[in-house]
Amino acid sequence: MKLGEVVSIVEGTLLFDADLNVEVPCAGAADLMSDVLAFAEPGSVLLTGLCNPQVVRSVEMADMVAIIFVRGKHPPPETVALAKEKGIPSVTTPHTMFEMCGRLYEAGLRGCDISCRIDLVR
């Protein structure tokens, strides 16, 4: 699934202009950054309710490609600035984490821990 499609499914608003023509193999959702660092696959998207700059750092370290901030949360300027500096497209959506995961799953996107590893084996 293309990142642009992900953004439109979650009805997300971009926090700054970004290239959405990127293929996204899978996604993960967590508020615990250590969980993110444990499960994230390179190239995946993160859904989170956490808004501090550590979200961007975690995504950067794990080679994830985009952040979706759920439940209408608008991250503080330092988070947005860091995401922009690191070139990590970020969007905010008014919907809840559960709802967003559900819609993306329904549209065919799978969680990091399963789909990506299957892809790697192939």
Partner: peptide, 15 residues
Amino acid sequence: ELGFGAGMGLSNIQS
């Protein structure tokens, strides 16, 4: 609240 302290740090490093 910062998203850390879930008890995964050291095991993440090890993995």
